[in-house]
Design a binder for these strands. Structure first.
Lengths: 242, 242
DNA sequence: CGCCCGGTGTGGTCATACCAACAAAGAGGT
DNA sequence: ACCTCTTTGTTGGTATGACCACACCGGGCG
């Protein structure tokens, strides 16, 4: 008996996959960093010996993942540029994944609670006076944001994302933001069903204030519980059993 | 002063983006579900009034997100098929995102711990005897997997993913799996640096056994702490300060 | 009956041409 | 000398047509 594994089925490797793999490798090993520009499509064509079709399909895949951005024209910032803004792409992917994998809203909310609970705890530990001021400012903005729901929601999102950022975990911040964005439309629909969303918003503002105070006081466990309750309660009362 | 917002800059909407948007919408509203086949590229061309180039670039974007799979040939299962297997794509996206956003391994491990802690707690609550048997089976496999690291790692991954699955949260399961996959190469490198990885693997197996026992006993908090320590310790001792 | 072998439809690739956007170089007038 | 307009070249975006590799499917031949 040898240590060899069983036969591995050969898969047809398409041209654009190889192009994609080469670019991804240059990103992973640091050759290509955020903000840098990759060669023009026509240059890649001659450098890789494939058609522009294949090059473009690879670039399209990268763009769908939020890895690059394409800008037309000539000059310094034209061409395909590597970007670090993959959060929107992550959001979009999650949104589709939720629909296809038939993941329940309950699972998503539970996951969000897990992440936000830890973010609140971390924020309470490492917050600075400036952080607290920023949070208070956002809450104040929410209190006076009586124009429309979109405005309120934008501030609400920034509040929670800011807490995650304060906690210092960049990945958790991005995931939180993506999960939030993936159910943004559902949340908007839930708000639209409310007879008076302003009253509910008032309650949320009060809860936000309590969270800010707990973070300010450095009471991590309390902040975590407040955030968890804040999210769970809204979901239970307004979305699941409206 | 009106309630109108400021002018919104118009962006050039490319053809393939519109194609992509239409397909995504059909997925989001349930018209297109997992396993279903979309029209052939040439049909889409005549249905949408665009060139095959644009159709293909949209499909390529969907494929990069793991939403569809393309199979050549004719017959029933040929063509572009909607799939629910977006976890590999999520893994790949996260891997690139980590490199570009310069997210530290510490942040990733911390996030993993958060998710796994909750998964262990949930698993201890809702485990069945079959679940426990499955976990024990995996641990036993790890004990006898002395051939090579890849084999051990595959079982290790399945162990943790199984715990998440037992907890019942499909999204957390997928995220855990993706995060794990995103750092698989780093972990393999860490193992390769060990003078005797089999000894370390033995410790890991012992820890796994303790986790299984806690899950079996329904001791959620204890299972959570064990998993957290299990992951953090390995990372601290073997990766950060090897 | 069973095997082979084109027909047909699918995605994959290529080459070419042209369009749209944009910047920098150049031509022209003041 | 300065400003303005035009030209030119480079970039990504789209369209078209052709051809290839693949896989099923059915007819025809042994």
């Amino acid at each position: 008996m040898t240590t060899e594994a069983a036969w591995e089925p050969v898969r047809r490797v398409r041209m654009h996959e190889q192009v994609l793999a080469q670019i991804e490798e240059k990103i992973l090993d640091g050759t290509l960093g955020a903000g840098e520009k990759l060669p023009s499509e026509r240059e890649l064509v001659s450098a890789l010996g494939v058609s522009r079709t294949s090059v473009r399909e690879a670039l399209r895949a990268l763009e769908a993942m939020g890895i690059i951005e394409a800008r037309t024209g000539s000059g310094a910032d034209a061409g395909s540029v590597v970007t670090a803004r993959s959060t929107p792409a992550l959001t979009n992917l999650l949104r589709l994944h939720l629909a296809l994998a038939r993941i329940s809203l309950a699972d998503l909310v539970e996951t969000r609670v897990q992440l936000e609970r830890n973010a609140a705890r971390g924020a309470a530990e490492s917050r600075t006076p400036e952080d607290v001021a920023r949070l208070s400012e956002l809450v104040e903005g929410m209190r006076t944001a009586d124009q429309e729901y979109a405005q309120f929601n934008a501030l609400d999102t920034e509040f929670h994302v800011t807490i995650a950022r304060i906690s210092g975990n960049a990945l958790a911040t991005d995931l939180m933001q993506a999960l939030r964005g993936a159910v943004e439309s559902e949340m908007a629909a839930a708000f639209a069903r409310l007879p008076d969303w302003r009253a509910v918003a008032g309650d949320l503002v009060t809860e936000h204030e309590m969270i800010v105070r707990a973070v300010e006081a450095g009471e991590g466990d309390r902040a975590a519980e407040l955030v968890a309750g804040h999210i769970t309660r809204f979901y239970q009362d307004r979305v699941l059993n409206p």
